[in-house]
Design a protein around this nucleic acid. Structure first.
Lengths: 130, 130
DNA sequence: TTATCTGCAAACATTTTGCAGCGAG
DNA sequence: CTCGCTGCAAAATGTTTGCAGATAA
């Protein structure tokens, strides 16, 4: 069974503190700034565990880096992610789901995942560039 | 200006020969199997150039690997990609575009990109597993 | 001729893994 | 006490870059 270590708790609390999409490195740095001594590998291992347990969402930035974010709603959902600051907003359920199923079926595809995340620049970042 | 070298042509022809999403490594291997002597770095450099010129589409697999595919239509479009064999089908234009703009605007986001690619298992692969 | 391209190897960035020791339960 | 977890360093990936030589135009 799983143990609750200081490190695991620190990673989880950091994810809760900043509910935006962050890279493992960012989380690692923030933890150090806060005085927590956590190894980078441990951050990765815990993020992986959390992802398996569906407690965090994972997505890939355009550059190929994995970004993690605390999972707020249990239901399937999408994100609107700011490519400047990582701020993310969950997108309300929509007609997308059924659209995807239709498309997939009509092309003979099965087991289709649609991790459709939208990247843009949030209001805050476009107001105060850099 | 750009020169048309044997290597550049080989990469481009390989992309044309197999119009599915492939990794740089896959393309590199195939070229070697065909007897072309092309360096891996050259494959990467040419794929990059082709992407800049919008002659190939680029997307990231869930594992973070970049996948390249010859660009068939000039218009903006999406893909339905087989996660087993890489086979891709372009998805007909849809109401998605306007839906994305609406969502983005209502959240105050600008410059939104929606590289929404769907991953699934194509008919062929689900018929003959492995 | 000459600026661009290539191959190779080294550098990079991100992520994973091996292993000895630590510590939660 | 035990087994899972940690830290570190090394390895594995995927991709980029520096440089000297090759080559298209």
């Amino acid at each position: 069974m799983q143990r609750m270590t200081k490190q695991r708790q620190a990673v989880f609390e950091e994810l809760t503190r900043v509910p935006d999409f962050r890279s493992a490195q960012q989380i690692f740095e923030d933890l150090h700034l806060q005085g927590h001594r956590v190894g980078l590998a441990t951050v990765y291992r815990n993020l992986q565990t959390l992802a398996e347990d569906r407690r965090v969402d994972v997505l890939r930035s355009t550059e190929g880096e994995a970004l993690y974010r605390i999972c707020e709603s249990d239901e399937h959902h999408h994100h609107l992610v700011c490519r400047v600051c990582g701020h993310a907003e969950e997108i309300a359920q929509s007609q997308i789901e059924s659209w995807v199923s239709e498309i997939a079926a009509s092309h003979g595809f099965s087991e289709v995942s649609h991790s459709m995340d939208l990247f843009g620049v949030c209001a805050n970042c476009s107001a105060s560039p850099q």
